[in-house]
Computed example of a mutant assay.
Amino acid sequence: MTSEEMAALHDRSFTTPRAWSAVEFDALLASPGAFLETATEGFLLGRVIAGEAELLTLAVAPSARRAGQGRRLLAAFESNARARGAGSAFLEVAADNGPAIALYAGAGWETRGTRRAYYQRPDGSRVDAVVMSKPLA
């Protein structure tokens, strides 16, 4: 999957947080510890640094949701992060993204905190980020 394809899918998948550009994906993919997991109509970008994994973003095309792609991408992320030496993982998700929070919770991720007014919506309002983590060891 090219950075342009990722940016287009990200744009179809997100309003909060804002969609990332192809240039941003290129920069993230070139950063230390970054890795990409792909599915037919989705992708996940993560990284491992100093024994900790971060799930940077997970996007599944709206038309392909609830068909298991997100679960498969999440499982691949966890396996790849473990193989890269991560003992734990964390992520941030918009507090109003119920389906994503349910996906993560169903895979054993637990809420660890909240970042108040972390994301900005297109209308300028703010929404909290839920911080979730999971041991991988």
Rank of each mutant, 00 (worst) to 15 (best):
Met1Asn: 09
Thr2Asp: 10
Thr2Trp: 01
Ser3Trp: 00
Glu4Asp: 08
Glu5Lys: 10
Met6Arg: 11
Ala7Ile: 11
His10Tyr: 07
Ser13Asn: 05
Ser13Leu: 07
Ser13Gly: 04
Thr16Pro: 00
Pro17Cys: 03
Arg18Ala: 13
Arg18Trp: 01
Ala19Thr: 10
Ala22Val: 03
Asp26Phe: 08
Ala27Thr: 10
Pro32Gly: 05
Phe35Arg: 06
Leu36Thr: 06
Leu36Glu: 00
Glu37Pro: 07
Glu37Lys: 09
Ala39Val: 07
Ala39Lys: 13
Ala39Asn: 02
Glu41Cys: 03
Leu44Lys: 15
Leu44Ser: 10
Leu45Thr: 04
Gly46Cys: 02
Gly46Phe: 12
Ala53Trp: 09
Thr57Arg: 07
Leu58Thr: 01
Ala59Phe: 12
Ala61Ile: 07
Ser63Ile: 03
Ala64Pro: 05
Arg65Asp: 00
Arg65Lys: 02
Arg66Phe: 03
Arg66Asn: 04
Gly70Glu: 01
Gly70Lys: 12
Leu73Gln: 05
Phe77Ala: 07
Glu78Trp: 14
Asn80Lys: 15
Ala81Ser: 10
Arg82Ala: 07
Arg82Asn: 06
Ala89Trp: 14
Phe90Leu: 04
Leu91Asn: 03
Glu92Pro: 02
Ala95Lys: 08
Asp96Pro: 03
Gly98Ser: 13
Pro99Arg: 08
Ala100Arg: 06
Ala100Met: 09
Ala102Leu: 13
Leu103Arg: 14
Ala105Gly: 12
Gly106Tyr: 15
Ala107His: 15
Gly108Ile: 08
Gly108Thr: 08
Glu110Asp: 05
Glu110Arg: 13
Arg112Phe: 14
Gly113Tyr: 08
Arg115Leu: 10
Arg116Trp: 01
Tyr119Cys: 09
Arg121Ser: 07
Asp123Ser: 00
Val127Ala: 02
Asp128Asn: 14
Asp128Gly: 10
Ala129Asp: 02
Ser133Thr: 12
Lys134Asp: 04
Pro135Phe: 07
